[in-house]
Design a protein around this nucleic acid. Sequence first.
DNA 1: TTGAAAGCGCTAACAT
DNA 2: ATGTTAGCGCTTTCAA
Lengths: 338, 338
Amino acid sequence: MAANSKHGKPLTIEQVAAAAGVSTMTVSRVLRGTDNVAPETREKVKACMDELGYVHNKIAGALAASRGTQIAVIVPTLDSIVFTELLAGIAAGLENTVYQQVIGISEYDKNRELDMVRTMMGWRPAAFILASARHLPKTVQVLQSSLCPIVEVMELVRNPIDICVGLDQRKAGRVMAKHLLDKGYKRFAYLGSDHSIDHAASLRFKGFQNEIKKHAVDFIHKLTVTDQSGISLGRNYMPQLLEQCRDVDVVYFSNDAVAAGAMMHCLAAGIEIPNDIALASFSGLEIASAMPIPITTVRSPRFEMGKLSAERVLARLLGENVTRVTDTGFELIEGASA
Amino acid sequence: MAANSKHGKPLTIEQVAAAAGVSTMTVSRVLRGTDNVAPETREKVKACMDELGYVHNKIAGALAASRGTQIAVIVPTLDSIVFTELLAGIAAGLENTVYQQVIGISEYDKNRELDMVRTMMGWRPAAFILASARHLPKTVQVLQSSLCPIVEVMELVRNPIDICVGLDQRKAGRVMAKHLLDKGYKRFAYLGSDHSIDHAASLRFKGFQNEIKKHAVDFIHKLTVTDQSGISLGRNYMPQLLEQCRDVDVVYFSNDAVAAGAMMHCLAAGIEIPNDIALASFSGLEIASAMPIPITTVRSPRFEMGKLSAERVLARLLGENVTRVTDTGFELIEGASA
DNA sequence: TTGAAAGCGCTAACAT
DNA sequence: ATGTTAGCGCTTTCAA
C-alpha cells in the first residue's frame, strides 16, 4: 500500500533514504541512474520509493545541479499542422533522453516571443528551439546571454544565432514557379495571409515572383489578408480574388490550408480544376492529398526538421561539434490541381 | 549596455542587489511585485536588472517557496484542432496570471499518460488539467497524492478525481440521432476510429445507437479502424464502407475530420450529398463549415472548456470553493450534408 | 520600508 | 560502493 503524503507535504529523498537504510546520496544516485550502486541496494531503494510513492523533485535537482532538463520550444501557433508535426519530431528526437520539451506559443508576435523567451529563461532550460528566424534584437540578445544551444528551425538562414535547421523558402517558391511555367501557365495570381505575419510565406512569394519575372511575367493579382491563415481564408477570399481578376490561369497560395479552402469554393461554385483554373501551394499537408483533386504542392519535412533540431541540441549538449546550418530540402508533389 | 553574463554563469539576485545598493530581499520583493517597496527603490532595482540583463531564476524561486507556477496539461494528441483549441482556451484563462501551462502528449496511451503525469509531477506543478476521463488506477493514485487541483476536461463524468469540465458525449450522439430520425433517415452506418482509442467517440456512438434503437432501428453497418483519426481515414475508408453496404441513407462519423475526408471521396466519386447519401458528424471544426456542402455536426466548445478549466484551477488555488462538475453543453449545427 | 538568517530538497565534490 | 559536507539561488520568517 502506498503510504504517500497524506501528511500534507510531498516526500523527500531523506524519508526514502531512512526507509531504505541508506544515505540520501545513494537514493539520489538511484534516482538518476548514475554512478555505481550495488544492484541489491538499487532494488531496495527502488522498492522503498515505489512503496512510499516518492516522486523525484526536479526543481531541487535542477537547482543543485545548476542545469535543467527542459528544452524550450517556441512556435508561432498550434493552429497549423505544420507546427504540431514539428513538435512531434522534436518529441521523437528527445525520446529516451532526460530532456523534455516545454512549448510556448508566440502567436506570430515578436513582442510576445520576447516575453516567452524571458519567461522560459526563468526555468533555465537546457536549450531553445525557435520555429522562426526573425526576432527582435533584444530577443537575440537575451537568447545569447543564456549561453545554451539555440536552434532556429523551418526557415534556412545564413547567419543563425547559433544553429539553423530549415529549408530554403525562396527556392521552394522558385521551384513551384518553374514547375508551373513548364506546364505552360502564364497568368498568375496569389492568395495568402499578410506577409508581415508569415515571413516564410513572404519568402516563398518572392522566390516565386523572381522566377516568373525571369520569364517576363509577374503576378497579375496578389491578394493578402490579415485573417488567420487557414481553410476559411481560402474559402472566404477565393471568390473575391476571382472577381478581381477573371483571366487567371493559376493561383499560388501561401499554404495548403488556404489552397484547400479555395478549392472548396471552386467545387461549390462549379469551377473546374485545373481546366478553368489551376491551384498550387506549399506545405504538403494531409488535406492537400485528400482533396477530390489532389493539390500540387511542395512538402516541407516538418517532422524531420523537428527531429534533427532535437538531435543537434543533444549533440551540442554533449559537447560535440555541430553543423551550424542544415538545409533539409523539400519535395515537389504533383497533384491534379495544376 | 547590458553587461550580462559573459562571465559564464547567469547573474544572481545578489549581483543585482549589490549594483542597486540594497539587500537581496528587496530585489526579491521587486521581482515578485509583492510587499511594499518604496517606489524609488523599486525603480532603481528595476533599472539595475535591466542594465545587467538579469532573468529571474524560477527554479530557485519555486524551491524556496516550495510551490511552482506551472500548470501541467496532458492532451492525447496535437494532431486534432480540438485539442489545440482547448490549449488556446487554457492559455487565455491563464493570461495575466503567474501561471503557465506545460503541455504533455499522451498519444491516447494510458501508460504514457502515467509516465507523463509522473514526469510532470517532478516539477511540482500547481495543478493538472487532463483532456481525458479514463485513466489507469495508478495514474489516479499518483495524481491524488499530489494534493493539487486536478481538472478532467472534455468528457462529462459523474465522479471526477477532483474537478470536471465537459460535455455529455452520449447526449451529443443522441441529439444527432434524433435530428436525423426527424429528417426521416432510417438506414444508418458509422465510420470512425477504433473505440478503444477514442473513448469520447465511443460514447457518442452509444448515445446515437441507443436513440435509434428506441425507434427500432440499428446501424446497418459499423466500420471502425485503428488508423490515425483524420481526413485520410475518411477519405480512405469511405469507399470500403460504401462497398460493404450500398443501401445506406446516412453515415455518422466519429468526428468532422473523418466526415470531411469521406465527403472528399464522395465529391471525387460523383456521389451526391445529401441525395445519394447524407453525412453527419461531431466537432464543429472549421473544415466542416468550409466544405462545398457544409457538414451537419455538433459543435463542442473546446476553447470555452479550456478557459473554464483554467478558471476553476485558479479559483481553487485561491482557496475558493469550486463547482466540481460543469456541463458545458454543445450545439447542433445544421449543414447541408443531411 | 528594509535587512539578516535559515532553510527549500537536492547534487557536486570530495572523502572513506 | 557508499557516505559527508557544502552549497545551488531564491524566499520565508522574523527583526529592526
